[in-house]
Design a protein around this nucleic acid. Structure first.
Lengths: 239, 239
DNA sequence: GACAGTAGGTGTACGCTGTACACCTGTCAA
DNA sequence: TTGACAGGTGTACAGCGTACACCTACTGTC
């Protein structure tokens, strides 16, 4: 019978993590509570604690699952192409798991999987002729873009189920906004193609990600070529 | 008597927000609960709801208080100097309010104060000769650095009260780490001055912030000079 | 001066969270 | 056969945000 069949698939850390990831994919990260997750697995909440130490460790594990989906770049490319490929692969993964951004940002401790990934990224720079010193700083400069996402600058994650306001209402809102915030209006209309009714339409996140990435990678390459060293920092002045 | 004196200072949205900010400064953002905050104000939790709509609106207000402390740049500078000064001022503020990073990142809706600040930043670019189009993208590229902080790439926020492990233990940990993660070890030792015992010491966040900022600002200036436009994007190839 | 309206503080209650602790049960080794 | 133990259960607790009903003190109007 079904009950026995369910019994025959015992819980395991792996099964717990997989279901947690699936639940987050389906219902959002805020739906992932110990109780809800246990219910999904047909089990009492405390049963989970035999497989993960607690909620925090659960989230760590979920992040590790995500990182496990990152694909390494093809060999034989220069550092810039390799890094670009690696990060765009990471990006594809976090787009698939939209909750991952928040989960990654909330983690304080770096798991072995996280360290392994960072080691690979660092290795790409080092292998490309970057000094260890410069590698350190450029990785800081990449920041969360290492994980395949940019910070959300504008509010693009409004309730996806909500009906968008009609175009004329949008145009009115935009006009009102423009009186207070002319510069924001200027860039919003430029993005929307000079059409006031398209202002709230959100940005092309993929383009923004690649744009910023390329500005950074080009800047890094320039520093590498110039033999930049942090020991020069005093001679740089404060611009 | 004291009770009457307390009565004579009635609650107000301003007083609630100020105390919330103070509490977050002293005890961390996670200590700011409606119950705890009410207690600090000598009042019952539900009393707060007469002044802020809920926890979310409270956090919005706290972020607005922080933004209110950002200083505008001195006039008469070129765009790059003005922006640098503005962002470093923002940075000084969020260093003062260490919880602000998390609070800002958690907000979904942009308040008027937030929009006003973003408008000022955008205005600096526009005034510096950037097209509205390019301004949009460079602001995305700055991302959270607009708010004066970089993402935390390495784990620098370990329990500040915890005693650091002794140097020889650190060196042992570093050696073990190095076998698994040689590239990380390389950059860590470069940072710590080739001294294994200094590896876990954390980074100079201020330097990392300015480093990344300058890479970005220099890249932006180059794009501006070249007359970059997003319409060129197809001709750029995919590198 | 009487009275209604209201702004603002109170008390209770509900449903949700993570998880400590004691308990039971089925499986496997000796 | 027995005893250990891995793993699932049940109860309980402290904390959270907040809905709702209530009370109280002040304020403007007649």
């Amino acid at each position: 019978m079904a009950e026995e069949a369910a019994r025959r698939v015992p819980l395991s850390r792996d099964r717990v993590l997989r279901r947690a990831v699936g639940l987050a994919d389906e219902a959002g990260i805020e739906a992932v509570s110990m109780r809800r997750l246990a219910q999904e697995l047909g089990v009492v909440p405390m049963a989970l604690y035999k497989h993960v130490a607690g909620k925090d460790e659960l989230l760590d594990g979920m992040v590790d699952v995500v990182i496990g989906e990152f694909a390494p770049p093809d060999p034989g490319q220069d550092w810039q192409a390799a890094l670009r490929q690696r990060l765009l692969s990471a990006r594809a993964v976090v787009v698939r798991h939209r909750w991952a951004r928040q989960a990654i940002e909330s983690r304080r401790k770096r798991s072995l999987a996280v360290l392994g990934y960072m080691d690979a990224v660092a290795g790409t720079f080092l292998g490309g002729g970057f000094s260890a010193d410069l590698t350190h700083h450029v990785m800081h400069a990449l920041g969360n873009r290492i994980w395949g996402f940019s910070p959300e600058l504008f509010d693009e994650t409004g309730d996806p189920g909500a009906a968008p306001p009609p175009p004329e209402a949008r145009a009115a809102m935009a006009r009102e906004l423009g009186e207070r915030f002319p510069s924001i209006l200027a860039i919003a209309t430029a993005t929307a193609g000079d059409d006031l009714s398209g202002v709230g339409g959100g940005c092309d996140e993929q383009f923004e990600y690649e744009f910023a990435l390329d500005v950074l990678l080009d800047g890094f390459e320039r520093l590498r070529r110039d033999g930049w060293s942090s020991r020069d920092r005093d001679q740089q002045g404060d611009r």
